[in-house]
Design a protein around this nucleic acid. Structure first.
Ligand code: ATP
Length: 745
DNA sequence: GCCGCGAGAGTTTTT
DNA sequence: CTCTCGCGGC
C-alpha cells in the first residue's frame, strides 16, 4: 500500500506519529483513539520507506494481539510483513535465549516451567530448608520471587538487599529464592520471569550479543506500554540504546497488571527518560458512542493517580448504557443470553458482534449453561484447562524429558507412569546414588544394576525406563514433533492402557491424549519449526491462544443465525483478556461489590484504582451498546452470598433497574425455560439450608458502632460463628457473632 | 508399592 | 463445590 493510502486511514496526529522517523516517540492517549492502528501503520510505513522488516521489533501484550497485528501488517504490505519480529516480550525473550543462552550457561534445549512446576519447586525448597509449608505458603513465596524478577532483582541481588535488612523473613525468602534458582538451573529450566530477567542480564553482561541486537533493531515499537514491568522496561531501553527509535503507545488508565509487576511509571516518565522524545496525543475516540464513553470516563475519573486526557467521539448520543439487577446469577445469565438471542433473531445482529465479560473465570460456567440452553454458539477465551489435565501433562512430561533429560520435575512425573514398580522409596535410593556419583537422575537410572539396595524389580524397571527414553532421545533430531509423540505413546503404551480400560473417565482421558496428538499435528502443519522443542515452547507460551468452543449443541442443524464461515459466535472472556479488543455489543456481568471490585472491603486505594481501570477497560470495549448486570444473590465457589451493586455502576452515573421476574423472551422455548427455573429454585433453597443458628444470610441486623446492615455471608459454628455484614453505610465487615453485639431487626 | 478413601483447604485477574 | 494431600489398608 502506498504511503498516501496508508496516511489516508489516519487523522492528523496519527499521521504525525507514523511519519516520525528519527528518535523516540510516545503516544499516550485514551481508549479507542487509534494507538494500535498507529503501531500497525507505522510498521507498514517504515517498510514502505525501505527499512528491512527484520530490523523492526514490535512487541504486544498477548499472543492474540501479535497474531492480529501480523495479519494486518501482511495485508498492508503483502509479502514483506512476515520478516518483522512481532511477538510478546516473553516469546521474543524465549527465542533470544534459545539462540544466545549459551553465553549465560543455558543450553538451547531449556524448558519453561509453568506455574504448577514453579510451585512444586518452591515446595521442594521449603522441605529442603526445613521450613513449614503451613507458615510459609508456597504461593506467597513464589509471588515474592516472581515480583522480584519483574523488578530485575535476581537471587543474588535479593540476598544482598536482605542482608542489609534485619527482617528474618526476607532472609528466609532469600534462601528459598537462591535454592529455587539452583533447582531451575539443575533442570536446565527457566520460569516466565526468568525469560525477561535472563534476557536483560544477557544483554547487560555480554557486549557482543548486546551490540548485535542493538544494531539489528533500528526501530522498536511497543503496544500497551503501560503494562510493562521494570525488567521489560530495562530490556527495551537496552535494545533501543543505539538507534533510539523507540516508539511506545499506551494509556495509563488501562494499566491493569500492577498485581503482576506492571509499573505505570514506565509510560508516565518516558519523557523524562527520553527528553528528546516526540509526544503525540490522540484525542478522538473512534470506537464508542458518546454515552458509553461518558459512562466509562465517569468511572475512571474517580482515580486519584492518573493523567487527565482529552477524549471525544463523533458518535454523539447513542443507546443508553443499561444497568440491571437480577435475583441471582442464573437469572443474570438467562437474560444476557436471551437478550443476545433476541438481537440476532429479531434484529438480524450477528452472534459474533457480542461479547460477555466477567471478572473471574469461575463466573463463566453459568453463562455457558444459559447460552447452551438457548443454542447460542459461543467461545470461551482463556487459559486452557486442557493443558492442566493429568494425562496431557504426563505425555508432555515425556516430551520434555526427551528434549531435556535433566528436567527433574518431568522425570519424576513420568518415571513411574504407567506404573512400572518404581515407587517413592526406590526413587529416593536412586536419587541418593545420583548425588554421590555426581550423575543426573536420568543417568543414574541407567546404572541401576550397580544399586544393590534396590529390589530386582525396581532395578529392571529403572533400566528399562532408561532404555526406552534413550531410544527416543536418539531420534529427537530425526523425528518431527508429531512422530515423536506417537513414538512416545507407542513405547510407553500410555494410550493403549487408557483405551483398554472400560472406565468412563479413562475413555475421556484417552480422548484427551488423542486430542493432544492432533494438536501436535496441527502445530506441525502451521509452523516452520517442526521440532518437539518448538511445540513445547509453543505450549508454554501460548496459554491464552486457545479457545474452548462450545458447538457441542445441536449436532443436527446449525443454530439459527449462524453463518457458514464459522466465525460467528459470542465471545466469553475475563475483562483482562478483553484489553485491546472491541465489540459492538458488550455485556459486563457480575457488577457487584466484592466481585467487581473484587475482594473484601479492605482493599487499598491502589487496588481499588486498578479495579476501576479494569472497569474502564471493559466498558470502553463497547462500540454501540453496553449492558451492565449484577445479581443480588450469587452462588460462587459453592457458597451463596448477598451483594450490593458495584460502586462503579453509580460512579458511571447509572441507576439500576430491578427485574422482578425473569424476562420472558419469545426466543426462549418454554421447555427451555422450565429447567432454568427448577434449578433457580434449587439454588435459592441452599441459601437457608443451615438454619441451626438465629442468624441467617439475608437477615437485617444492627451493630452498636456500624449501624444497620444485612448479613451477606455466614461461616463457622457455635462460638466461632462469623457473619459478613453489609452495612447501609456501604462498608462491610466480617464479625464474630459472639463479640459483635448484634441486634436482630 | 499401589490404590482408595476421607478430611481439609482454598479459590482474581495471566505472560 | 472441587481438588489436593495424607494416611491406612491391601
Ligand atoms: N483515523 C481513524 N479513522 C477511523 N477509524 C479509526 C482511526 N484510527 C483508529 N480507528 C478505529 O478505531 C478503533 C480503535 O482503534 P485502536 O484499537 O487502534 O485504538 P487503541 O487506542 O489501541 O484502543 P485501546 O487502547 O482502547 O485498545 C478501531 O476500530 C480502529 O479501526
Amino acid at each position: 500500500m502506498s504511503t498516501e493510502a496508508l496516511l489516508g486511514q489516519l487523522n492528523t496526529p496519527q499521521q504525525e506519529a507514523v511519519l516520525h522517523m528519527q528518535g523516540p516517540l510516545l503516544v499516550l492517549a485514551g481508549a479507542g483513539s487509534g494507538k494500535t492502528r498507529v503501531i500497525t501503520m507505522r510498521i507498514a510505513h517504515l517498510i514502505e520507506q525501505g527499512v528491512a522488516p527484520w530490523q523492526l521489533l514490535a512487541v504486544t501484550f498477548t499472543n492474540k494481539a501479535a497474531e492480529e497485528m501480523q495479519h494486518r501488517v501482511d495485508q498492508l504490505v503483502p509479502g514483506r510483513g512476515s520478516g518483522v519480529v512481532l511477538s510478546t516480550y516473553h516469546r521474543f525473550c524465549s527465542k533470544l535465549l534459545r539462540q544466545e543462552g549459551k553465553a549465560i550457561g543455558l543450553s538451547n534445549h531449556y524448558v519453561i516451567y509453568d506455574e504448577h512446576d514453579q510451585k512444586s519447586l518452591v515446595k521442594e525448597c521449603l522441605t529442603e530448608l526445613n521450613l513449614d509449608e503451613k507458615k510459609f505458603k508456597p504461593g506467597v513465596l513464589l509471588s515474592l520471587i516472581s515480583r522480584s524478577k519483574d523488578e530485575l532483582i535476581d537471587a543474588q541481588s535479593y540476598e544482598i538487599h536482605a542482608l542489609a535488612d534485619p527482617d528474618p523473613f526476607r532472609q528466609m525468602v532469600a534462601g528459598v529464592y537462591r535454592l529455587y534458582q539452583k533447582k531451575l538451573a539443575a533442570s536446565n529450566a527457566v520460569d516466565f520471569g526468568d525469560l525477561i530477567l535472563k534476557s536483560a542480564e544477557l544483554l547487560r553482561d555480554h557486549a557482543a550479543v548486546r551490540e548485535k541486537y542493538q544494531d539489528r533493531f533500528r526501530y522498536i515499537l511497543v503496544d500497551e506500554y503501560q503494562d510493562t514491568n521494570r525488567a521489560q522496561y530495562v530490556l527495551t531501553k537496552t535494545l533501543a540504546a543505539k538507534h533510539r527509535n523507540l516508539c511506545v503507545v499506551g494509556d495509563d488508565d488501562q494499566c491493569v497488571y500492577v498485581w503482576r509487576g506492571a509499573d505505570i511509571r514506565n509510560i508516565l516518565e518516558f519523557e523524562k527518560e527520553y527528553p528528546e522524545a516526540k509526544v503525540v496525543k490522540l484525542e478522538q475516540n473512534y470506537r464508542s458512542t458518546e454515552r458509553i464513553l461518558d459512562a466509562a470516563r465517569n468511572v475512571v475519573r474517580n482515580n486519584k493517580f492518573r493523567k487527565e486526557k482529552k477524549l471525544w467521539t463523533a458518535k454523539t448520543g447513542g443507546d443508553p448504557v443499561v444497568a440491571d439487577e437480577f435475583q441471582d446469577e442464573r437469572q443474570e445469565a438467562l437474560v444476557v443470553a436471551s437478550t443476545i438471542k433476541q438481537g440476532v433473531v429479531k434484529d438480524g445482529l450477528r452472534y459474533g458482534d457480542h461479547a460477555v465479560f466477567y471478572r473471574i473465570n469461575a463466573q463463566s460456567r453459568v453463562l455457558e449453561d444459559a447460552l447452551r440452553r438457548m443454542e447460542i454458539p459461543y467461545k470461551i477465551i482463556g487459559t486452557l484447562r486442557f493443558y492442566e489435565r493429568a494425562e496431557v501433562k504426563d505425555v508432555l512430561a515425556y516430551l520434555r524429558l526427551v528434549i531435556n533429560p535433566v528436567d527433574l520435575l518431568a522425570l519424576r512425573r513420568v518415571v513411574n507412569v504407567p506404573a512400572r514398580g518404581l515407587g517413592k522409596t526406590s526413587l529416593e535410593q536412586i536419587e541418593r546414588f545420583a548425588g554421590e556419583k555426581h550423575l543426573s537422575l536420568f543417568e543414574a537410572l541407567g546404572r541401576a544394576h550397580d544399586m544393590h539396595a534396590l529390589t530386582g524389580r525396581a532395578r529392571n524397571a529403572a533400566v528399562e525406563f532408561h532404555t526406552l527414553v534413550s531410544t527416543l532421545i536418539a531420534n529427537r533430531d530425526v523425528w518431527s514433533s508429531h512422530e515423536m509423540i506417537r513414538q512416545v505413546l507407542e513405547a510407553t503404551r500410555y494410550l493403549k492402557i487408557l483405551e483398554e480400560d472400560d472406565d468412563g473417565e479413562s475413555q475421556v482421558r484417552a480422548q484427551n491424549v488423542r486430542e493432544l496428538v492432533n494438536a501436535v499435528g496441527e502445530y506441525e502443519e502451521r509452523s516452520s519449526d517442526k521440532s518437539t522443542a518448538g511445540f513445547l515452547e509453543q505450549v508454554s507460551l501460548v496459554a491464552d491462544s486457545d479457545e474452548i468452543e462450545s458447538t457441542r449443541h445441536a449436532t443436527g442443524g446449525r443454530p439459527p443465525g449462524s453463518v457458514v464461515d464459522g466465525a460467528n459466535y459470542v465471545t466469553l472472556m475475563t475483562v483482562h483478556l478483553a484489553k485491546g479488543l472491541e465489540f459492538p455489543f458488550v455485556f459486563m456481568t457480575g457488577m457487584e461489590e466484592g466481585l467487581f471490585p473484587i475482594g473484601e472491603s479492605d482493599f487499598s486505594q491502589e487496588e481499588l484504582e486498578e479495579e476501576r481501570r479494569l472497569c474502564y477497560v471493559g466498558m470502553t470495549r463497547a462500540k454501540k451498546y453496553l449492558y451492565l448486570t449484577w445479581a443480588s444473590s450469587r452462588r460462587l465457589f459453592g457458597h451463596s452470598r448477598w451483594n450490593a451493586p458495584s460502586r462503579f455502576i453509580q460512579e458511571a452515573g447509572l441507576s439500576t433497574n430491578r427485574t422482578e421476574s425473569p424476562v420472558s423472551s419469545p426466543a426462549v422455548e418454554s421447555e427451555v425455560r422450565e429447567p432454568v427455573w427448577d434449578s433457580y429454585h434449587a439454588g435459592l433453597g441452599t441459601l437457608d439450608a443451615d438454619l441451626a443458628t438465629p442468624y441467617q444470610v439475608g437477615m437485617r441486623v444492627r451493630h452498636p458502632e456500624f449501624g444497620e446492615g444485612k448479613i451477606i455471608e455466614k461461616s463457622g459454628l457455635g462460638d466461632s460463628l462469623k457473619v459478613m455484614v453489609l452495612f447501609d453505610s456501604g462498608q462491610w465487615k466480617k464479625l464474630l457473632v459472639k463479640y459483635a453485639n448484634l441486634e436482630r431487626l
